[in-house]
Design a protein around this nucleic acid. Structure first.
Length: 589
RNA sequence: GGGGUGGUAGUUCAGCUGGUUAGAACGCCGGCCUGUCACGUCGGAGGUCGCGGGUUCGAGUCCCGUCCACCCCGCCA
């Protein structure tokens, strides 16, 4: 149907007869001469209908409207002097139409197909076939394609096999809420859609496949966010006979390959290494944005010499006092400070103490600090005149949580966060367990198949909760610009260790057997040491695109209520379907 | 489950302390226009003010409820 693509008509085609097809991006009817910008995936080119070349064709051109699909035959020529469009790659040429055909018409549009459309998301998703015509979205999908291709190429080169795992699988305890699928042939029983192919990929290792990968859909029935969809894609990998260092090295090379191939960006520096403890101490979270500094400092040992009751009481109860220095923010108004205070209170802090460093220290609380103490605090924070010192005093986790969010907020306010900068970090030495206060039991921080560190195995077999809380995991997260883009671990490959793990998680042998028996059996039949990692593809591509939302890199995303405005899924089903499945509805009003 | 913002023409929005016939831009339809590329120009059509109640002589505007979209908290091993 065509000899050229619209965006690829160039000066070298001048004089030749070509045939192109595409959508009418814009038409300009001057009465005498009609211009149409014809668009296909490759770009735009201007076509000209002039009465001099063909009266009938020129007349018919008046019928064309936006988004009509047309086919054009004509000759390429240089545009007349003074009419070159510098802002268009094809702006030096135009196609003089000799023949054209309307291949399809288009009803009036619900919104303009245009990169800077400001149509609402729900309208765009309802007519996603129009929304996806916008070059800016196509660019994202193209980058996503290049990214997955680069992953596949790299992994293929490293001897990884792409192996599919079941989508209809088994519900497992722990983790997110499952999406369930009823089984018609087993009334009353349900499949679950996988939250990840975790167990299957481990079984592939036991089976001797040695290197597995899959770019695979995962499902979690939890509430949505700008960076969270109920179905999302992981680059999922598992390797046998490796340690965590070897895995991290491989992943680092892979990521650099992908950034170079898909984005043309060379990541030169080595990924930063942080232990979990370092990350928490210095940034208050396990996914710090390393594009800026503003590190936190623990000042508990200093403020214990003050007379500020809030701090002293917190310390007495086993809490801590940490602080951060806002560079150049000593001029903050009462309202600015109130806003910041409200922000941290939203995350559980009781308040935010502040001290401005001007010629003197300025704050309602300076009177509680003896001479010299404030200098020591200032020194520890690396603060100087003109800065604002902000303090949170609370339990360790609340303090860290609030200050890490405050740190990100200050990073934004001080405009320290630049796009097109990629700061990677590995976070390692995670605790194996996280204490669940509600249920009074340990939960796996990563997942229940994560191996404890060799040197902590002794603790692993001790009975007291305090020892157990000190066990570190052979787990590692990969962080990019303050976003967790992936994580993995060395897995448990010995049955007795896995049994012990379930025991510590409060999962009885019987339950473990019914839920994970097939994995436990496999571990008992010559399971090799193995480990792996999964990367969140959507989030990664989102960062690479500079997109604000994960929905901008997914062709058919769901709304915050986990619905699809295009297909209207989910929807009710017929009584017959329910009957076949043995399902009766009991909807709470 | 909770907090916030929004919902008025096809679209994006304005609409003041409640008051006559709800406006603008873009889009759409028609006319004019031979060098535009945000074309210009003249004219026209287009509204259940998300939905349901209430207050009032009178509600787009105030109150209550509800639905939807987005952002966040909880949740997401």
């Amino acid at each position: 149907m065509r000899t050229h693509k619209c965006g690829e008509v160039t000066g070298t085609d001048i004089g030749s007869e070509i045939k192109i097809v595409g959508w009418t991006n814009k038409w300009r009817d001057h009465g005498g001469v009609v211009f149409i910008d014809l668009r296909d995936r490759s770009g735009l080119v201007q076509v000209v209908f002039s009465p001099e070349s063909d009266e009938a064709v020129h007349k018919a051109a008046h019928k064309v409207r936006n988004e009509y699909v047309i086919q054009v035959s004509g000759s390429v020529r240089a545009r007349p002097e003074g009419t070159v469009n510098e802002s268009l790659p094809t702006g030096a040429v135009e196609v003089v139409v000799k023949e054209f055909k309307i291949l399809n018409e288009c009803k009036p549009l619900p919104f303009m197909v245009d990169d800077d459309t400001d149509a609402s998301e729900s309208l765009r998703y309802k007519h996603r076939y129009l929304d996806l015509r916008r070059p800016i979205i196509q660019k994202n999908l193209i980058l996503r394609h290049k990214t997955t291709k680069a992953f596949r190429d790299y992994l293929d080169g490293e001897g990884f096999l792409d192996i599919e795992t079941p989508i209809l699988t088994k519900s497992t305890p722990e983790g997110a809420r499952d999406y369930l699928v009823p089984s018609r042939t087993n009334p009353g029983s349900f499949f679950a859609l996988p939250q990840s192919p975790q167990i299957f990929k481990q079984i592939l290792m036991v089976a001797g496949l040695e290197r597995y990968y899959q770019i695979v859909r995962c499902f979690r029935d939890e509430d949505l966010r700008a960076d969270r969809q109920p179905e999302f894609t992981q680059v999922d990998m598992e390797l046998s006979f490796v340690n965590s260092e070897e895995i991290m090295t491989l992943i680092e090379h892979m990521i650099k390959h992908v950034f170079k191939e898909a984005l043309g960006t060379e990541i030169k520096e080595q990924f930063v290494r942080l232990t979990y403890k370092d990350a928490m101490d210095r940034y208050g979270c396990d996914k710090p944005d390393l594009r800026f500094g503003l590190e936190l400092a623990d000042v508990s040992d200093l403020v214990k010499d003050s007379e500020f009751k809030v701090f002293l009481d917190t310390l007495k109860r086993g809490g801590i006092v940490k602080a951060i220095a806002g560079k150049g923010l000593a001029g903050y108004s009462r309202k600015d400070l109130d806003d910041l205070t409200k922000e941290v209170q939203g995350y559980g802090a009781k308040g935010l103490a502040w001290i401005k460093i001007k010629d003197d220290y300025e704050s309602p609380i300076v009177k509680f600090f003896p001479d010299g103490l404030l200098d020591k605090i200032k020194e520890r924070l690396g603060a100087e005149k003109g800065d604002l010192m902000l303090f949170v005093a609370d339990r360790v986790n609340v303090t860290n949580d609030c200050l890490s969010r405050l740190r990100n907020e200050l990073g934004r306010r001080l405009e320290l966060i630049s796009d097109n900068v990629y700061k990677f970090a590995w976070v390692t030495d995670f605790p194996l367990f996280e204490w669940n206060e509600d249920e009074k039991r340990h939960e796996a921080m990563h997942h229940p198949f994560t191996s404890p560190m060799e040197e902590d195995l002794e603790l692993f077999f001790k009975e007291d909760a305090e020892s157990q809380s000190r066990i570190r995991a052979q787990a590692y997260d990969i962080v990019l610009n303050g976003c967790e883009i992936g994580g993995g671990s060395i897995r448990i490959h010995k049955k007795e260790v896995q049994d012990r793990m379930f025991h510590l998680l409060g999962i009885e042998a019987e339950e473990a057997n019914s839920k994970f028996g097939f994995l436990l059996d496999a571990l008992d039949h010559g399971a090799p040491p193995h480990g792996g990692l999964a990367l969140g593809l959507d989030r990664l591509v989102m960062i690479m695109c500079g997109a604000r939302s994960i929905r901008d890199v997914i062709a058919f995303p769901k709304t915050q209520k986990a619905a699809c405005p295009l297909s209207n899924a989910p929807s009710e089903v017929s009584a017959k379907q329910l009957e076949e499945l043995g399902i009766k509805l009991d909807i709470k009003e």
